[in-house]
């Protein structure tokens, strides 16, 4: 059972997703939570405090996601992390406006996003290196190729859900993960293909 503070944060996330962070009023949050504005003010002194609390939760979850880097030395590890990203970006759909806003009311949030996004790309790049060293991916044909691939994978991870939403197409986890794997498939070695084939039943279950 959630306490009132958690309920307020969850209701705010829902409203931020539907209307955007800037256009949600305290009255709406109070109505969604099922409490009075006075009660809301007792828990959070203003909207900025709510926004800050929402981002604290959001970044905590993102930190946990990043900490799942290479827990096991296999393709399934990346697949599991992809599932985590999918859940995350689906839960916090309002992130997209943050990424494109020139000025955020809370500047430290923008710098946090920037750091997390850079870490994501670095993780993907190092993952590729790891699978190259295991002989599952081809060695880099020309310098910088894998960095570009890492950036493309990052773009898919971050922007696949919004692009499907814009085009009113189904947002399913299976397609999301396949969209990412398709970036890497052309670079698989025979060993990589065999491994991928071997684990594909597990991937479809996740």
């Amino acid at each position: 059972m959630h306490n009132t503070k958690e309920k307020i944060v969850l209701a705010s996330i829902k409203l931020f997703n539907e209307h955007g962070v800037a256009s949600v009023r305290l009255q709406q949050i109070a109505d969604e939570t099922g409490i009075s504005v006075g009660n809301l003010a007792y828990h959070f002194r203003n909207k900025e405090a709510i926004v800050s609390s929402v981002y604290e939760k959001l970044f905590d979850e993102f930190r946990q996601l990043l900490s799942t880097y290479l827990l096991t030395p296999s393709f399934t590890d990346f697949d599991m992390q992809m599932s985590g990203y999918f859940e995350f970006f689906k839960t916090y759909r309002f992130y997209i406006t943050d990424l494109f806003s020139a000025e955020h009311p809370l500047p430290e949030i923008q710098s946090e996003w920037e750091m997390f996004m850079n870490k994501m790309i670095l993780q993907i790049r190092n993952r590729i290196d790891f699978h190259v060293s295991r002989g599952e991916l081809l060695p880099e044909s020309s310098q910088g190729t894998y960095h570009l691939i890492a950036e493309s994978i990052w773009m898919t991870l971050v922007f696949w859900i919004p692009q499907q939403t814009i085009r009113r197409k189904p947002v399913t986890e299976g397609r999301y993960r396949m969209a990412v794997w398709n970036h890497l498939k052309p670079y698989f070695t025979q060993k990589g293909l065999d491994t991928f084939e071997l684990i594909s039943p597990v991937l479809s279950q996740n």
Partner: peptide, 13 residues
């Protein structure tokens, strides 16, 4: 951070 990830890669090797 990139070095750190590299060391994590090495851990499995």
């Amino acid at each position: 951070y990139s070095h750190l990830l590299g060391r994590l890669n090495d851990l499995h090797v």
